[in-house]
Nucleic acid binder design. Structure first.
Length: 855
RNA sequence: GGGCACGUAGAUCAGCGGAAGAUCGCUGCUUUCGCAAAGCAGAGGUCGGGGGUUCAAAUCCCCCCGUGUCCA
């Protein structure tokens, strides 16, 4: 980054000097005479016992101070976004305030909700879990306070100068820091293909904020200026509160009274972990994460199980739910949604606690057995075993050690080693828009006016070509719905050419035609949408909203949409839920949605300001993920479901027609998928099912209502005849065995050993085995059995004579008929040539038996 | 999204290439006034599903399905 990037007018105007840190070598700007930047590790924490700000602020007060400061300087205050980053697929959690605006706002696709804006965004980071409580400053949930500005060439809000000016004013005039104590260290920020200069703000060893200026796109080695430049700031609320108290660790300052309460029962480290995790769990569950074994859910599980472990080893520890309630109380002032569904949260957490107890129980018995086995083979349990158990059974090493008589030492780096077992080089998937791979129209192309929002029933329209590139066409206005929000794109025709796909690219709607139509810009075209297909998609989409609402009613508010798909054939919704749906729950959901259909409620779609919509409906608006923009498109079914949604919808619930749930499956731990149909498809599917049922009934010769009992009868009969058949062959073989034993030509007596020979062509291996078993029930017997079947010779030997091994006799017989096989002392088998060689094999075995018997 | 472990009798599990087992539970009998207990006898298994290798697969390999768990 060029030095000029950091030479701000603000610095010059106010007499800041640029110096170089003698420790890290970075350039920094300051009013004070420092030889190093004021950030650890370049210098020690100097604020412990000497607060950076003259007043000590409580957590909520500091946040309010910050937001109000920026609000008074022209920023619009925004409510928090969800901590679960459902609108991106490269990350699970909101880890910084700017995540709220990526990728759509930062890429210029959608205007920012306000500009400039200020927000305090709760963020989740799970990469330093072990540091929590130990370092004195790590949290898994923290708030990043920020002010953001988005600058377009035609609309500059503010950039570097004003940003630093605001920051400086906040720290000094507003919060009372000594201006000379602040250093602005020069850094380079890079992420997501963008980069720009940034300044890191340090005071007395503490990094209070980072001011990032996104202005370039990396293009190979070259840097291109971004069309949209972004002010991305981050001020750590926890750090500000800590700085204002100057306490030894951040936790007592941040958690305040709650910290003191918990400290009465727990040591400092445990207290910090419990409080931190309690906050995290509250946010996670409120924002629709249910504990599970993968993705977001795993972190909820981790936080819950870690907390339970700490609580479990402390006598008189409070219940986890009590702790959650305690933290919810502190958070509820700012975030009323937290703690609003206390009972539901308790159910989710208690269910997880139960599962954890089950897992540990299971693990204990495995561990006991393993040790027993190890002891009997003279081995001992190793640290590797502990690692394996943690990995596959989830049992923490401390618990395993408790269970063992002779435990190994737990390695100090146990959890690091556990993590190392899972190192993979799988690249993180990028949060690309769907537009990836599609041609992007030139920037000068006028944005497409989308009409399907206004009227989802219009299926023919006229418009003009504003861009054409091979089969790709952009119109000035269109009724074609592009793939989005889980709803697949419309089909239809532009002129005489079929539209095979429709996608949103930036501000444009791109129609992909079956072939290049050769149109020129300005040409007038007529569009015609496949109306039946669109209608079906609308029905499926509205049905999805109804189901979502009904599922929340029946199962509880922890239910969030975790994904959805609305196709012409069927639709599905994935929801967060902690156990499989019972038949009864399913039934109630289905009844409820169909009742809403019958009551013919209006489905209202309208635009509303974000703030107003959030105030009226709360956070559950964002079922499909956060939707940027000043205005949200709200789809409301009164009393049932309200979502921010860009899809096409029926205007009355009765248009949806019957809704039939076809399938419910648990697609992963914590996520349940429902597949369903509505409208025309519901009728089709019902007809199909009825046809299948009546055909099945016809074949069974019963009425449809008699199917279940008819099938039971049939299964009973099958079972019965299977038994009869089995018994019969056993009988037959029994008779054969008796006959053989009494047939002098089949029996040889060699000393005290009775050798029975028989050739029974057609018997399979299992029959020979059974016959052999019958013949060798008495001791001192040998059975030599042969069968020719499907052109091969089968030879089977059974022996109840200890010194005559069946396998040895087969060995002896093998050369005679080119047999391959083997066995054990009591039974052996081989296959080879049929006919005479098989008979020779029998003779060879007989001779071997005779000599083995010593006769 | 990836790694690992596990799916065998109603339950808990053993067996890990050569003729499907143990314990508990269940049924019947013996014993008892009755119950419990004990003894004896018995029923109960397409060894999760499908392919493959092998003379031979619960066992080895591959693919599904299900469960658990860890990591990101």
């Amino acid at each position: 980054m060029e030095p000029a990037e950091y030479e701000l007018a603000f610095f010059r105007r106010n007499g800041f000097q640029r110096r170089t840190c003698v420790v890290c070598g970075s350039g920094f700007w300051s009013l004070g005479d420092h030889d190093r930047c004021q950030e650890a590790p370049c210098r020690d924490y100097g604020f412990i016992g000497h607060p950076i700000f003259p007043h000590a602020y409580e957590y909520a007060a500091m946040r309010e101070k910050f937001l109000a400061f920026f609000e008074h300087r022209g920023h619009t205050r925004l409510r928090r976004y969800p901590t679960v980053c459902r609108w991106r697929n490269d990350v699970f959690f909101t880890q910084a305030s700017i995540y709220d605006f990526q990728p759509w706002v930062t890429s210029g696709t959608i205007p920012p909700p306000a500009n400039p804006l200020t927000i305090s965004q709760p963020c989740l980071r799970f990469n330093d879990l072990e540091e929590i409580g130990r370092s004195g400053r790590h949290f898994s949930e923290f708030e990043m306070m920020a002010h953001h500005a988005f600058n377009r060439p035609d609309h500059e809000v503010y950039f570097k100068d004003r940003t630093v000016e605001l920051c400086h004013e906040l720290l000094t005039d507003e919060l009372g820091t000594d201006p000379k104590g602040i250093t602005y260290k020069e850094e380079v920020w890079e992420g997501g293909g963008n980069l720009g200069p940034s300044l890191s703000v340090g005071v007395l060893g503490l990094e209070l904020a980072t001011l990032v200026f996104m202005e370039y796109v990396r293009d190979g080695d070259a840097l291109r200026p971004m069309p949209l430049t972004v002010v991305d700031t981050g001020y750590g609320l926890e750090r500000f509160v800590w700085a204002s108290h100057g306490t030894k660790n951040a936790y007592e300052a941040v958690f305040g009274a709650a910290y003191d309460e918990v400290r009465r029962t727990f040591p400092p480290r445990e207290a910090a972990v419990l409080l931190d995790h309690a906050r995290t769990i509250n946010f996670l569950v409120t924002d629709g994460v249910v504990p599970s074994n993968s993705k977001e859910g795993y972190f909820a599980r981790l936080a819950i199980r870690r907390s339970l472990r700490i609580l479990g080893k402390t006598p008189d520890a409070p219940a986890l739910t009590a702790l959650l309630d305690r933290m919810a109380r502190d958070l509820a002032h700012q975030y009323p949604e937290i703690g609003q569904h206390r009972d539901d949260l308790h159910r989710v957490v208690e269910n997880e606690a139960e599962r954890y107890a089950d897992a540990i129980d299971r693990a204990r018995s495995v561990i006991r057995r393993s040790e027993e086995r190890a002891r009997s083979t003279g081995q001992s349990i190793t640290a590797d075993d502990l690692l394996g158990w943690y990995d596959s059974l989830g049992v923490p090493p401390e618990v395993a050690v408790e269970e063992l008589q002779a435990p190994p030492a737990i390695p100090a780096d146990f959890y690091a080693r556990a993590a190392a077992r899972h190192e993979s080089d799988a690249p993180a998937t990028d949060y690309a828009e769907r537009s990836e791979g599609l041609p992007r129209p030139p920037d000068a192309t006028p944005a497409t006016e989308v009409l399907y929002y206004l009227d989802p029933y219009t299926d023919t329209f006229e418009s003009h070509v504003v861009h054409a590139d091979g089969p790709y066409v952009v119109l000035d206005r269109t009724y074609f719905y592009p793939t989005g929000g889980g709803q697949v794109a419309d089909r239809g025709f532009l002129g005489d050419t079929e539209v095979v796909d429709v996608a949103r690219v930036g501000p444009w709607v791109l129609h992909r035609l079956e072939r290049a139509p050769g149109w020129r810009v300005g040409e007038r075209v007529r569009g015609r949408i496949d109306k039946a297909r669109r209608m079906q998609l609308m029905q499926h989409h509205t049905a999805t909203h109804l189901l979502n609402g009904a599922l929340r009613e029946v199962l509880g508010p922890h239910v969030w949409q975790a994904g959805a798909y609305k196709g012409p054939e069927s639709a599905r919704i994935d929801i967060t839920h902690y156990k499989p749906l019972s038949k009864e729950e399913l039934h109630r959901v289905e009844r409820r949605v169909n009742e809403v259909v019958r009551r013919d409620l209006p489905v209202r779609s309208y635009f509303e300001s974000r703030g107003e919509a959030e105030r009226r409906f709360g956070f559950t608006l964002y079922q499909g993920g956060a939707v940027p923009g000043k205005e949200l498109r709200i789809v409301e079914v009164e009393g049932m479901d309200v979502e921010a949604c860009g899809g096409t919808h029926c205007t009355h619930t009765s248009e949806v027609g019957a809704i039939g749930i076809l399938d419910v499956e648990r697609i992963q731990d914590g996520i349940v998928r429902l597949t369903y149909v509505s409208g025309e498809r519901a009728l089709d599917v019902r007809e199909e099912h009825e046809a299948i049922l009546s055909e099945a009934a016809r074949r069974l010769g019963v009425p449809v209502t008699g199917l279940p009992s008819g099938i039971d009868r049939l299964l009973g009969e099958v079972e019965e005849s299977r038994k009869v058949a089995k018994a019969r062959t056993k009988d037959d073989l029994g008779q054969t065995a008796q006959a053989l034993l009494h047939d002098p030509s089949a029996v040889d007596v060699f000393g005290d050993v009775t050798v029975v020979r028989a050739r029974r062509d057609g018997l399979d291996r299992a029959a020979l085995q059974e016959l052999s078993r019958l013949l060798t029930r008495e001791p001192k017997r040998v059975a030599l059995l042969a069968s020719e079947r499907d052109g091969t010779g089968l030879f089977f030997v059974g022996s109840s004579t200890p010194h005559i091994a069946a396998a040895a006799l087969v060995e002896a017989a093998k050369p005679s008929f080119g047999g391959r096989g083997g066995g054990n002392p009591s039974a052996a088998t081989a296959v080879g040539e049929p006919g005479q060689p098989l008979s020779d094999a029998m003779e060879a075995a007989r001779a071997a038996a005779r000599s083995a018997a010593g006769a």
